[in-house]
Design a protein around this nucleic acid. Sequence first.
RNA 1: GCCAAGGUGGCAGAGUCCGGCCGAACGCAGCGGCCUGCAGAGCCGCCCAUCGCCGGUUCAAAUCCGGCCCUUGGCUCCA
Length: 497
Amino acid sequence: MTLHVTNTLSGEQEVFEPQDPDSVLLYYCGLTVSDYAHLGHARSWVHVDVMHRWLEHLGYDVRHVENFTDVNEKIVARVGEDDLGDTEDEVARTFISEVIEDMRSLNLRRAEVYPRVSEHVPEIVDLVETLVEKGYAYESNESVYFDVTKFEEYGKLSNQNIEEMEAQGEEDERSEKRNPADFALWKAGAAHPDDVSERRSEDSETESRQSPAGGQTWDSPWGEGRPGWHIECSAMSMTHLGETLDVHVGGQDLVFPHHENEIAQSEAATGHQFANYWLHVRLLETGGEKMSSSLQNYFTVRNAVSEFGSESIRTFLLSTAYNNRQTYSEETLNEAVERWERLERGYDRAVETADSADARTKVEDDALRTAVAETRETFADAMNDDFNTREAITALLELVSAVNKHVDARDEYDYRALSDAVETFEGLGEGVLGLALTGDGEGDVRLLDELVELVLDVREKERDAGNYDRADDLRDELAALGIEVQDTDEGASFRVE
RNA sequence: GCCAAGGUGGCAGAGUCCGGCCGAACGCAGCGGCCUGCAGAGCCGCCCAUCGCCGGUUCAAAUCCGGCCCUUGGCUCCA
């Protein structure tokens, strides 16, 4: 089975074929860095990360570019707040480093480049000039707008109808535009904090902080100003990946107007298709509405990771395929924790049992061998079917069951089958889904192991002597330290939570 | 209002593109049992589904067609 993806452009599932059979040009619409990232953002990141990993697994060289929008009135609105920074640029840098830390905590594979708007203004100006020269854009009062009526295919991504469209942009902008749906490529002057949405400005009034200065501006043929929102992605993706992308990924909430406008300005400028496959990650919902900063219903990535751990969070986010919306609640997150722990225990058990098995054994367990083969096949089919990560995790959990049955039912173990199972968990669970099964494995861990074993030996002696109260005390004390003790036929074992 | 995506057990969520293996997966919660000094983990079993509603096509529909109801997202900054 070859990889199939749902393309928003056609609304259908298509066979995936990059322009160059050996590599994939992938662009992901990143964050506007005006706040900490929440689980909704993490959902997109993790799914893009797994797409990246799966494409590599299929043998492609993935060129992954992910931008940071560091010029925006929401950033300006936070200038002077706490220790965030005294200028738009400083605030943006503060959040970029925070966001990158969040990404690292989620074990995301790094993109090749993380371009920033402020570093691509010359390319943006060039692109806007091209659009003006070609007659797709016009200057108005030192700003430049894209004339949507000049681009015949406008609306092809989101099926919008220009005639029925309401005006976009801010109040004073509208009077400068020829058509209500025209959008700004270049904005005169600096971003002002008052330009942010009403909800936010109402909030900030109560905080009574100094009214900060405006944001950054740059010279341009039309005067001092700054780039419009949509043009940045066109300019940055073209700079780093060329005129036609293989895959463009972003949140579902960006389909219109952002992605629609990217297509219009890019294709108008180059005359070529901007992106062959548009993939949209559906949103994370909680309490029946999307998780978002403006609705104040979010759970930050850092809080989520520190409370539940990176692996549980990744398992949670991957437990619903990217193109379906996901429900966040205490219960759904809890379920993911259980799923992850079951997977981890299964993996550990496979490793420990394989280690104890005789490598020259003649023992063969057909059920386990079949399960390994089926897991690999099911996993690949699931991923090739539009990155169905839910099914992929399910396949690994089926293998956990097979391992458990094998170990429970036998005294002699099938070494080869267990090693294959371990390899499958590591290659697919850790390699593709990015779930760290093999752990740190650093020096401290060995010492920890030895110390815990020592305590368990003492506890074993107490048990042999019938001093169960003292044995239970030791178990409780270890549990309080996050070390879970499990008694088995082969003696006590433990795992660190 | 317009555009798009959905409605499957207590929860969550696959399956819907390519109708039959779906008498509906995996898991969480709940209930029995095995194992165990106890607990946990694991194993076995059970529980809960007229697959939004109505009609149609078909030997056969969760899956195809039509109508209706409801939800979410977008149309304003937004992953």
